[in-house]
Amino acid sequence: MPNRVYISFLRLPLLVRILVIALLVFLSFGISIHLLEPDTFPTIFDGIWWAIITASTVGYGDYVPHSFFGRLTAVILILLGVGIVSSYFGTLAAAAVTKQDAFSEGRIPYKGEGHIIIIGWNERSKELISKLTNSKYVQMIVLIDETLEANPVKSRFVHFIQGKGHVDETIIKSDIQNAEKVLITADRGNDELQADMNSILTLLTIKGICPQVKCIVEILTAEQVNNALRAGADEVIQSNKLTSVFMVNSLHSNGDGLLSNIVHELQDSRLSSYRAKEEEIGRTFNDVCHILLKKRFLLIGIQRGDETFLNPSHSLQIEENDHLLIFK
């Protein structure tokens, strides 16, 4: 039985073991001084109080042993107690530093719910994280990247995990089961095809662990869009296609940067959609547009099945399963 207790004690964390030893020392010396000098230390609590103060500080002087054995006990306590207390606080400080380093270096798993996971550190994810952390309603972000050595964002709303996005262990550390969305960005350090293959492999890993989580994937080559959808992507962003749209617009807009200016103005707005409400069904696009304008929402189009109509005819009637596209 004593051997089992000793083995169980050794399995405790170092900090807990030192604390237990310190408490036993304080208790032992507190009882001993009470027994040696009951007049000076009327109760066991007084003895324990004296032991703690003597070992951890220079002592208050409210309790002082007078007998030879009492003072000898005090000397032993000082020599023994200083080492134990110093070890405890030294270990506590070292544990705190180690924990902070592990947190900064991305070795601590995230625990939470409703967070957004962003895979890949680049200029796009940097800009995105900056806007999300400075928005009105801040949402917790888990950043996963294998190239970084420490968290690049000094924000309490960003938790960094160092590792490869296509490795199960890394994804599990992000608490994927409780995540709201996952954004997989393309690694432009590789050629476009290889970057898309890595993104799709990461997507397969995530969907294999948590099929229900919504995944948004950045794809560079048009040929890999269908493969990303087959792998389970809920939404595919063709960043090269978006860039080409800007370039074409710039070529035909006499260099006034009209599209860029509009996008810049809309950075603080959010494009979203919602299913048409009962009171909106049967009304015309024009009527619903005026209703939403009073609520400071801008209606720009309708999504009907697989088709999207931007700025449709004002006489178009809203149907039951339509989704309205609005800017908030």
Score class of each variant (00 low, 15 high):
residue 3 N to K: 09
residue 5 V to E: 11
residue 6 Y to V: 11
residue 8 S to L: 12
residue 14 L to P: 11
residue 20 V to M: 15
residue 24 L to I: 15
residue 25 V to E: 15
residue 30 G to N: 14
residue 41 F to R: 14
residue 43 T to V: 06
residue 46 D to F: 12
residue 50 W to A: 06
residue 51 A to S: 15
residue 52 I to K: 12
residue 55 A to C: 05
residue 61 G to I: 04
residue 63 Y to M: 08
residue 66 H to G: 07
residue 67 S to K: 01
residue 79 L to E: 04
residue 90 G to C: 08
residue 90 G to W: 08
residue 111 K to R: 15
residue 113 E to W: 04
residue 116 I to W: 01
residue 117 I to P: 07
residue 119 I to G: 00
residue 128 L to H: 00
residue 136 K to A: 09
residue 141 I to S: 11
residue 142 V to Q: 00
residue 142 V to I: 09
residue 150 A to W: 05
residue 151 N to L: 09
residue 153 V to H: 02
residue 153 V to A: 07
residue 156 R to T: 08
residue 159 H to P: 13
residue 163 G to W: 09
residue 164 K to F: 01
residue 166 H to Q: 11
residue 172 I to K: 12
residue 184 I to T: 05
residue 188 R to P: 02
residue 195 A to M: 10
residue 198 N to I: 00
residue 201 L to S: 02
residue 205 T to D: 00
residue 209 I to T: 02
residue 211 P to V: 12
residue 213 V to A: 01
residue 216 I to M: 01
residue 221 T to I: 05
residue 222 A to C: 01
residue 231 A to H: 01
residue 234 D to Q: 07
residue 236 V to G: 01
residue 242 L to A: 05
residue 242 L to E: 09
residue 247 M to D: 14
residue 247 M to F: 15
residue 249 N to H: 11
residue 250 S to F: 15
residue 250 S to N: 13
residue 255 G to C: 04
residue 256 D to P: 05
residue 260 S to D: 10
residue 264 H to D: 03
residue 266 L to E: 00
residue 268 D to W: 00
residue 268 D to T: 08
residue 289 C to L: 15
residue 293 L to Q: 09
residue 295 K to A: 11
residue 296 R to I: 08
residue 297 F to N: 13
residue 299 L to D: 10
residue 300 I to R: 07
residue 300 I to G: 07
residue 302 I to A: 14
residue 303 Q to W: 01
residue 306 D to T: 13
residue 306 D to L: 14
residue 307 E to T: 15
residue 314 H to G: 06
residue 316 L to M: 15
residue 318 I to H: 03
residue 320 E to A: 10
residue 320 E to G: 03
residue 322 D to S: 06
residue 322 D to C: 07
residue 323 H to P: 11
residue 326 I to E: 04
residue 327 F to E: 06
residue 328 K to L: 04
